[in-house]
Amino acid sequence: MAHKIVEGLLYTESDEWVRVEGEIAIVGITDYAQDKLGDIVYIEEAVQGNKVVKEDKVATIESVKAASDINAPVSGEIVEVNKSVVKDPAIVNNDPYSKGWLFKIKIDNTEEIKDLLNAKGYEEYRKE
């Protein structure tokens, strides 16, 4: 089964997606990542107000038989956390690209965005 990759989003090699809206980056995990994890049962949420550096561990997602760290795709401050996925982690399985977003980062350095993959790049990367 092919995994959904959404045009217009940016991606990391550790399977996070990023939607840039002005100085805010909205972050979630890709369809591939949620499928690989299986039924998500718990999300150790990001801490609002924390300053993070690119590639820092920000949150953890647990399924029954796996655990995966979610890293910051860019440096900045965590300005908002999606409380509804913390309450009902299945949302991430069902709708990873929209309702299943995890947290928002106020971007420190917009240059860092350039390091992220586009949809095509991510697709290529996952194909390998």
Binding site: V41, Y42, E62, S63, V64, K65, A66, A67, D69
Partner: peptide
Amino acid sequence: ALRAREQDIRREK
């Protein structure tokens, strides 16, 4: 239950 805390899944974490 709550298996994801354990070493066979999390290893050094």
